[in-house]
Nucleic acid binder design. Sequence first.
DNA 1: CTGAAAGCGCTAACAA
DNA 2: TTGTTAGCGCTTTCAG
Lengths: 337, 337
Amino acid sequence: MATLAEVARHAGVSASTVSYVLSGKRSISEETRLRVENSIRELGYHPNAGARALASSRSHIIALMVPLRTDMYVPVMMEIAIAVATTARGFGHDVLLLTGEEGPEAVRRVAASGLADAMIVMDVELDDERVPLLRDSARPSVLIGLPGDPAGLTCVDLDFTATGALCADHLAQFGHKDVAVIGEAAAVYRRHTGFAERTLDGLRSRAREHGMRVIHRPCEGSYESTAGVLARVFEERPDTSALVVQNEAAVGPMLALLRQQGRAVPEDVSVVAICPDQVALQASVQLTSVAIPAQEMGRQAVELVMAKIEGREPAPVTLLPPRLTVRASTGPAPTAP
Amino acid sequence: MATLAEVARHAGVSASTVSYVLSGKRSISEETRLRVENSIRELGYHPNAGARALASSRSHIIALMVPLRTDMYVPVMMEIAIAVATTARGFGHDVLLLTGEEGPEAVRRVAASGLADAMIVMDVELDDERVPLLRDSARPSVLIGLPGDPAGLTCVDLDFTATGALCADHLAQFGHKDVAVIGEAAAVYRRHTGFAERTLDGLRSRAREHGMRVIHRPCEGSYESTAGVLARVFEERPDTSALVVQNEAAVGPMLALLRQQGRAVPEDVSVVAICPDQVALQASVQLTSVAIPAQEMGRQAVELVMAKIEGREPAPVTLLPPRLTVRASTGPAPTAP
DNA sequence: CTGAAAGCGCTAACAA
DNA sequence: TTGTTAGCGCTTTCAG
């Protein structure tokens, strides 16, 4: 592996000049710059990451903490992770993958060792034990998700309250009066992840304004549990004419069950899903849906964290506005028999 | 951040002693070891990653290259990635996440900069452009997947040939004569990822021995495409009594469609899936399946790569044996009408 | 606009 | 069993 010194010798300049050509931190004459760049290319030089980190105390690495749990919809996590990685590369940074397994200790370790310059934390819970550590840490961090108390933190998330409200508005327009929310797995609520509750709040309060009735049932997402939930819903509220589904795994089973029960979508029942577009498009009926902007969240998280690394102080909370795409699964409420 | 020198002073020993306590590379008296460990704890010392990497030319980082594409079943990728990360931590290593985006250049960059000590590459194609680079690279690497020519490489993968054969055996036992394979998306075959072809080969040749007829149709996995594939299958081979499904996304739609068509599983049609257990268990009929051992693959990949880092030379190809779990979706072939 | 040189914090000979 | 010390390759003052 070629070293900076070798490049310097090859180009007939000093080491510092090569360094400055690389960093652009002081002006270099066109001529020497070209000579140096040539040498770099010819020797196939890549700066040594360790040496650079040691001398500059910047590793050009961003740590990404993903949850170990698997009860959330995994493709969304993956999409965020990939967006983070590619966006970070655009800023000349790499991404270190931390699983939740180490827990809060990972935060300490990475910060203290200087392994990463900053940290992005996914799947934040309302009362997350990593949050106090992050708040006190000398290294910048950005959360994807909203903890109970975001004071002193930087967070990005989809505006789930607005998402719920948007669903309510859309269904109200079609004259629906009885709405059922097929929610996330019970464990998600028990863990108080926040987003599920916020969706529900937004939907409920807007529904009230529209004079709609709402019931909510958690759903594990398997075929069996979806069947159970659906049965209970129509038993308790036979006039239910619209379903809002927040558990992506339940989408497929639910549509299959409705078909089986002879309930046509959207003639008998309208369905709005909160899910990635891919899921909405692959379903047996193209679903009206509010998309989870996974890429956008990853991208934003990196931009916020880079801002902090560079000493700027971004807005503490960034809520991405939801977008509802009307497809084939929603329509007017059936007129009373 | 405390430095090693500070720890040394605090413990009343030399820097090298602290270093050796940390690395265990030479024997230390019980007494000094304890004193040093205490100081480390008291000062909350974590070795500086950059300095360590520079001095030892080992970053204790393993790069993991994940595909950018999203036409493979994402949860499996994620599960492998998480298994890699947690296993690596057990070896005192961290994982750097590289997306396919940079392409082969990432291999060069990471190797030359010393950012990572080794590399694990997922979703390897039969004729992968990263493979020659990896083969020539000074840094160890392990592939998850099997390229066309594994010479000079280290690879782990599920034994897909055996997987196909296993499916054939199981169905033959039940007296099935006409089998249809619902395969991966056409793009997967076009890309020559290998595993899909190997499954098919294994299944076909074993089927021949059993006197079974096999047809194979690629399937995109959406409800619509699954419907089309299924229709064509039963049109061409009305006597088809068993389905082998290799595209996880098609599982849900397929079961829904069969139910709709009045084909009972397993009375009229047996179904074997090649998919993660979670998918097999969440389906409307508990599926007889061959599991994708994602965790095991991740774990093995790390162990192989660690062996190479430590100078050992592991077996070039590790094929994990498939395991078929019998559940509710397979049974005797229906007797001719 | 460019060069010289002092570290950054740690590892690993070499010495004792 | 422990200490001394010379780098590892780069960044960044300080000089010129």
